[in-house]
Write a protein that binds this DNA or RNA. Structure first.
Lengths: 346, 346
DNA sequence: ATATAGCACTCTAAGTGGTAGAGTGCTAAT
DNA sequence: ATTAGCACTCTACCACTTAGAGTGCTATAT
């Protein structure tokens, strides 16, 4: 630390400030940093560097005679440039794995446990976006009458998801006809993602206008029931309570805003959806979030995959002052484990 | 008010204290009560009555020179003996009905909207317990292979709920055999509640030991897959944020306890389950709740029915200081509307 | 040229004392 | 039985003080 160039020293000290502040939630002063390096540099020197960092907008003082606190920009720099991957402890891994893999084969239950796992390990709120059906691949459809005017359709995807939907029909469709339609669809749609089914069939109708027309049209009608492919975008959230243990939510007003944002779900949903495309971990710090209600918060998201295909996302949301390194590792790990678990169901 | 017997006067004043406190969250003094009755009795008289009520344990003083606050016992007396039914406004009814009936035929969405309706109208948290499958009546089952080693079972109930489950089999079961089993079950189980299916079949096996034995046994095996009748006890919760606007949660510690209790769900779940049996509205005040975490809170629950059969429950949870009259009316109304909505899906 | 010690300065958090106001209980009068 | 009057109690609020943490600047040492 004694003889390094000014650039490296700034980085080292910024890192120390961020880590110390994340750890203690108290503005960190020059003395504390100096101590952290066993007084190999004096507080006065640290103060000079701090003045630079403040000028660069990476840290700030809540008031004149307080220590420094990282700004959003400071966190961003920390996250982008000097964050080191943090390994999970054996214990943590085992808690996570237990929660995920002991869930039986009920998707709902798995999702609940995953969001709980995130929040328990990271001490911020955990979220999970259910696997998008649209991104799943068609495997099998079954159609049958449940009474004179209603048909039940059951679709199974390669990943083992089952989606069913009841539709009303004006005219009675015979069992034979339903079987024929199902057989046709089964051979026709194999390997197509659910999101593409409608456009695929429309194309087919145009191509084979004469031969199959009425038959195809009926199949289309059946599949066009609303709800069959409706985005099944359930958002699981857990650990909103443990957020309250962070001092930034001592102000009850902020706590309420945060909870409201969590309950609203629309904003978070769109954020997760938008973050699903690029692979890997995405980080949104403080004011970078469009959603004004959760400024002062950071959101870290990560997609998860089944058989190499992104189908959903998990996330952690908490105060800007969060353990970025740890949370990133946790999300990566959970994303992988969740993928495995879902594949094993398929 | 001037010339009534002492007993009635006590009741009237207790009622006034409760209502005033519920309204303002401020300990109510003798002056305020006197004013409430246009000074037809003087503060001094009120004080005498208050001293009696305090001795009876119905009200208490936070400190010597403060007004009075109802105790749990006071609320209980108020709720049991002097609560008058409160009618909802047209607006409120229309908001509720819009939320419930505009939900399409997706159960998940309906439940979400019902819990939101409760919390929006009552300004405390709303909860809904999904319809218990076990209490639903069997209508139809369909079985088919999805691949060599797995079978998909789809059960439909008279109320129109669909439940499906995938089961692994050691040996391949042919399509013909599945059809025969399904036909058998369809004729055998009609009108039986899902909860009774297993015992019904066990009895059957014993009765017809010789003729059908292996056939029945296979049917049993298929139906005994875990998860097919597993309690589908999803608990929907909404409005945890609006709880924070009540002054009793200004203490962040209490807020955290409350949130934790809401997230834990186990306690609430068992409370709702236990309250499902008796018909109508049930009220749990403060320390009456076993769950120590939500002491200081009250829970009001109400069952709901499909075709006269109780299948689930709704509830409101908030600080002890809540608008009992209004919330009771809201839950009654929503219970009825939810029942209607679910019947219309069946 | 860089690092450090020393010092004056600033600001907060916490504690102190004093006051106004709300509410009570008791007693005596109606 | 009811009420007016009064002494008493307790809280909430305000102004004020003080200790302590942290800073920036300057002069000195390396």
């Amino acid at each position: 630390m004694k003889h390094v160039d000014v650039e490296s020293r700034r980085k080292i000290i910024l890192g120390a400030i961020v880590e110390s502040y994340v750890d203690s939630a108290v503005p960190v002063g020059s003395r504390a940093i100096s101590q952290r390096f066993r007084y190999s540099v004096s507080p006065a020197t640290i103060r000079n560097v701090m003045a630079d960092l403040e000028e660069m907008g990476l840290i700030m003082q809540p008031h004149t005679s307080a220590g420094r606190v990282p700004t959003d920009k400071g966190y961003r720099f920390y996250v982008d440039s000097l964050l080191e991957p943090k390994h999970l402890t054996k214990e943590e891994e085992s808690i996570i794995n237990k929660l995920i893999h002991a869930s039986g084969n009920d998707i709902d239950y798995i999702m609940q446990n995953v969001s709980k796992a995130i929040s328990v390990i990271t001490n911020v709120a955990g979220m999970v976006l259910t696997p998008r059906l649209k991104r799943s691949v068609f495997k099998h459809i079954e159609l049958f009458n449940i009474d004179d005017s209603r048909i039940l359709a059951v679709i199974i995807t390669t990943a083992g998801f089952v989606k069913n939907s009841i539709m009303d029909t004006d005219e009675h469709v015979t069992r034979q006809e339903l079987t024929r339609i199902a057989e046709f669809l089964n051979s026709e749609l194999e390997g197509i993602s659910l999101g593409e089914i409608r456009s695929h069939l429309t194309r087919k109708v145009l191509e084979e206008r004469d031969t199959f027309y009425t038959f195809l049209k009926r199949a289309m009608e059946i599949l066009s029931v609303p709800g069959l492919f409706r985005a099944d975008d359930h958002l699981y959230l857990d650990g909103a309570a443990c957020i309250m243990s962070h001092p930034e939510f001592n102000d009850i007003g902020k706590a309420r805003l945060f909870l409201r944002a969590c309950e609203d779900k629309k904003g978070l949903l769109s954020l997760l959806n938008q973050d699903m495309e690029p692979d890997g971990v995405k980080i949104h710090i403080g004011r970078e979030n469009i959603d004004s209600e959760i400024q002062g918060c950071s959101v870290i998201t990560c997609n998860y995959k089944i058989d190499g295909m992104t189908v959903g996302a998990i996330a952690a949301i908490g105060p800007t002052r969060m353990e970025y390194g740890k949370i990133i590792s946790v999300l990566k790990h959970i994303s992988a484990e969740l993928g495995k678990e879902l594949e094993s169901l398929g």
